[in-house]
């Protein structure tokens, strides 16, 4: 039996823009298995980031249900949702979303503070994670003192702080140059293969598709098609990492 970690049922999301209603998601049904590396692909405005937000409990669907680990997310209390975000999911964003007032180390320890982990333990863990992403020597720098690639590494270390079973990455390479982007992708892929973390990534970076197990094409708020890695040919070298 397949171990489904994320399942969406007819998820609809509407935004009210003045008097207009924008239907960003128009009934999405997908299932994601544990340990998979999934890329949600689509042009800007296709709804992939909206779907990303629904799966990560960062926003509420207008209609439909999202199940994670078999739990209907709409039935969770505020405290359960906070615990879910804290323990089960690690988020990586396009614009890093680091807290500017906290050092790299401070950013990585924050989710552990929320999880109630002791100071000693969280310091050790933060050092270990920052070492792993190659920032052992810049631990106490503020985000403003780090390059884009380094900030994204801090964000990855922070996403892993509470050993989540799912990592959600929203366009993690969009603000990075090709080489740095490649490094970030390799790092995320390593988490997927070595630690068995389920990776769900919204992207239009072809380099990310190359490492994905499945690619979900989203268009106009609908799943256009789902392809397995071996069904598509990507010549990453030739494309040279250009997004679209």
């Amino acid at each position: 039996m397949n171990d489904i970690v994320v399942k969406t049922e007819d998820v609809v999301k509407e935004y009210r823009m003045g008097s207009n209603i924008l239907r960003a998601l128009d009934g999405i049904n997908i299932e994601i298995e544990r340990g998979e590396y999934i890329s949600l692909m689509g042009p800007s405005g296709s709804g992939k980031s909206t779907l990303f937000n629904m799966i990560g409990a960062l926003d509420r669907p207008t209609e439909g249900q999202v199940y994670i680990d078999g739990q209907n997310m709409s039935q969770l209390s505020q405290r359960q949702i906070a615990a879910f975000r804290c323990h089960r999911v690690g988020y990586i964003f396009q614009s890093y979303n680091l807290l500017h007032v906290r050092s790299a180390h401070g950013n990585v320890t924050l989710p552990m503070i929320f999880a109630g982990i002791s100071e000693k333990e969280r310091n050790q863990k933060a050092e270990k994670l920052l070492d792993m992403v190659g920032l052992g020597d810049r631990m106490y720098h503020l985000p403003d003192e780090l390059s884009g690639g380094q900030r994204q590494r801090v964000a990855i270390a922070r996403a892993l702080a509470n050993d989540p079973s799912i990592v959600l990455a929203d366009e993690p390479t969009a603000n990075l140059d090709t080489i740095t982007g490649r490094e970030i992708i390799d790092l995320i892929k390593r988490l997927n293969t070595e630690q068995g973390v389920t990776v769900i990534s919204a992207t239009h970076d072809l380099k990310m598709l190359d490492v994905s197990d499945r690619i979900v094409d989203i268009r106009d708020g609908l799943v256009e098609r789902i392809r397995n890695r071996d069904e598509i040919e990507i010549e990453v070298g030739e494309v040279g990492g250009e997004g679209e």
Partner: peptide, 12 residues
């Protein structure tokens, strides 16, 4: 779908 460990409540 398998039922995993239930989601706990966030602590204060």
């Amino acid at each position: 779908m398998q039922q995993r460990t239930p989601i706990e409540e966030q602590i204060d």
